[in-house]
């Protein structure tokens, strides 16, 4: 029982990341008709926004302390972060510690600019090209972004911890009346799940309850007619691309305390997120979210010792297996609409 609850919880945080990335992917596909393989790289860029802000906040003023020695026996260079000097040691330390949540504010403008630049600078030239061309160019872009990040930040994971108030874990088992210590769950993963839920709700509300969202939805359904009504749908779709980039970026920012970011993290999520989109149904926002959580939870279950003893290696193929079954039984995916990618 405890094991099952724990695996569901585990699946939820992983599913949150899948759902957020898949949401952006399907949003871009639904609006612009572009299969964006660089979406994982946007998730990674978001994570590196958090790394960058944490480094910026830790920029330090160097003084030489002749009484202490460095590893070569030379006088030690002591670094005092500027924020300590400006706001006092306690506030300064707190600012550095809270760098991940603060990065949300830092990442939003950056990700919007990156999204706009990407769409206007490169992807718009591929709207009328076949999907294979789009995949090649966006995949190439993802590799370029990845290598740039590797050049500046190195290849090793960079620890980016959560504020110490959220660093620990809580006893979920005791909270729901089970044995104390039987279900331990980290605070930050719960926060990540809540954050994802808020983001998903915000995107849906934006599309559902604003005029802008209504036009975008109309454009997704019938681009030509909306254009004939005199609405500049391309501009709105570009903005949607920036929003999708922002969603992926913020998903990356908040993911950094769960796993230390490295340049390759986008690729790790990209392939799975595509499977999520396909299982959910191409172009279906609800399907992407549903499939994201579903596959996250299934993946967690498949890693249980009992399951692995029964079917060895199932944890590595479960997602693809589910994709095959779904595509065989429901070729349009769980919530796919008729006519999408079927021309």
């Amino acid at each position: 029982m405890e094991a099952i609850i724990l695996q569901i919880l585990n699946g939820l945080d992983k599913g949150s990341a899948y759902a957020l990335i898949a949401l952006g992917l399907t949003l871009i596909f639904g609006t612009l008709g572009v299969v964006n393989f660089a979406h994982g790289a946007l998730f990674m860029l978001g994570a590196f926004c958090a790394v960058t802000l944490s480094r910026l906040l830790s920029l330090a003023h160097v003084t030489v302390d002749p009484t202490r020695k460095d590893f070569l026996g030379n006088p030690l260079k002591v670094e005092t972060p500027y924020v300590h000097e400006w706001f006092g040691p306690e506030t300064g330390a707190a600012i550095i510690e809270w760098s991940v949540p603060l990065s949300i504010l830092f990442a939003i403008p950056i990700m919007i600019v990156v999204g706009l630049a990407m769409e206007r600078g490169l992807i718009k030239h591929f709207y009328k090209r076949p999907h294979a061309d789009q995949i090649l160019v966006t995949f190439g872009l993802a590799i370029v972004l990845q290598e740039i990040v590797k050049f500046y930040y190195g290849a090793n994971p960079i620890p980016t911890p959560a504020p110490s108030a959220f660093a620990g874990s809580f006893d979920f088992g005791a909270m729901i009346g089970l044995d104390p210590g039987s279900i331990i769950y980290p605070y930050w993963r719960l926060i990540y799940f809540a954050f994802a839920a808020v983001m998903i709700a915000a995107v849906f509300a934006f599309l559902q309850f604003t005029t802008f969202g209504m036009v975008v939805r109309a454009g997704m359904a019938d681009r030509e007619t909306v254009g004939l009504l005199g609405i500049n749908i391309d501009k709105r779709f570009t903005i949607m691309f920036a929003i999708a980039a922002c969603v992926a970026g913020l998903a990356g920012v908040m993911y950094t305390p769960i796993n230390s970011p490295n340049y390759h993290m986008g690729m790790d999520f990209l392939v799975l997120s595509f499977v999520v989109v396909v299982v959910g149904g191409m172009g279906s926002l609800g399907g992407a979210v549903l499939a994201g959580f579903l596959l996250g939870v299934l993946e967690s279950f498949a890693s249980m010792t009992e399951v692995l003893e029964l079917i060895p290696g199932i944890n590595q193929i479960i997602i693809y297996l589910v994709a095959i079954v779904v595509l065989l039984t429901r070729p349009r995916g769980l919530m796919g609409r008729k006519g999408v990618m079927e021309q």
Partner: peptide
């Protein structure tokens, strides 16, 4: 590795 860690807890 969370799904590998949780069986350790159990």
């Amino acid at each position: 590795f969370s799904s590998y860690i949780t069986p350790v807890v159990q």
